[in-house]
Design a protein around this nucleic acid. Structure first.
Length: 271
DNA sequence: ACTGGCTCCTGAGGGC
DNA sequence: TGCCCTCAGGAGCCAG
């Protein structure tokens, strides 16, 4: 379940392997991802030299002079840099073969991910152009969250997970950031003070940076492009801890459903 | 302009 | 052992 720390971990892992390499061939075993892999993707990419590997929100951007491949891992997507000798496994949908003899392999059991192509400026792509702020950038402040949340009736947790406001925060880190900020996830976004939003903005940055340092969260099968797991699951304060004692006050962690998502929080520490 | 609900998909895990 | 059911979740899309 890649959120920002997991996607950024993968980006850092694949960047040195890809930049400067030329794509010599593409193998597509199953084009039916969230959207079909466009013909442009397989036609244009071979012969192109990769000039950068960037990230915007949870999208990975593999840039060439001719355009940009836009990759989203959805919920179960993985990228692996490996040798062409590696055996092909179930759900290995795409291989990008590189001129150094290595390849980038995209595997996605649930196929919620996507691989798209844009010849124009990537940030103008419909999926990217309306995205909110990057949580680790300076512009993502408590004031920004406060201003955006006025006259919003939805719960603060759903507000945080809205990628038009702030990107990269999925269910795990929304739960964790709200715990760190001492805010009840069900509280209406509009009814939280500027002061508390300052605390929340700081909590988001701390949680995401910490998770990034740990190489992400591996609950079931997340790993980076070299196959290494993350370790942030050892530091989760509330996520997946229903009925277990709060590490801070000892009260039992609550579990509720919000917008079809699991929410975990401490009723004493979070108000 | 917002908001909540639905949807895609497969694999894991629980109950019987 | 095996079958059936439920759940997990990113985020676009659509109806209200």
């Amino acid at each position: 379940m890649p959120e920002l720390p997991e996607v950024e971990t993968i980006r850092r892992c694949i960047e040195p392997e890809l930049v400067g390499q030329t794509v010599t061939e593409i193998i597509i075993r199953n084009p039916n991802l969230r959207w079909p892999i466009p013909e442009d993707f397989s036609r244009t990419l071979p012969g192109q030299k990769i000039v950068a590997v960037d990230r915007r929100a949870k999208y990975l951007l593999i840039r060439t002079k001719a355009g940009t491949a836009i990759i989203h891992l959805g919920m179960s997507g993985r990228l692996l840099v490996c040798s062409p000798d590696r055996s092909v496994e179930k759900h290995d949908h795409i291989d990008l073969i590189l001129n150094n003899g290595r390849l980038l392999r995209f595997n996605d059991a649930r196929r919620f991910g996507c691989a798209l192509w844009t010849a124009g400026p990537a940030m103008q792509h419909p999926l990217l152009k309306d995205l909110g702020r990057e949580p680790l950038e300076d512009g993502m402040t408590g004031k920004y969250l406060f201003d955006q949340s006025r006259r919003r009736s939805l719960a603060v947790k759903e507000f945080l997970m809205n990628s038009r406001i702030v990107v990269g925060i999925g269910n795990i880190y929304a739960n964790e950031a709200l715990f760190a900020a001492g805010i009840n996830p069900a509280r209406s976004a509009a009814h939280i003070s500027a002061k508390r939003y300052n605390k929340l903005a700081a909590a988001i940055k701390t949680v995401l940076k910490d998770a990034l340092e740990q190489g992400g969260t591996t609950l079931r099968d997340f790993c980076d492009a070299a196959g290494n797991p993350g370790y942030f699951q050892l530091k989760l304060m509330v996520y997946d801890r229903a009925d277990e004692p709060c590490y801070s006050c000892g009260a039992a962690i609550h579990y509720v459903r919000q917008a079809q998502r699991s929410t975990y929080f401490c009723g004493k520490c979070q108000r």
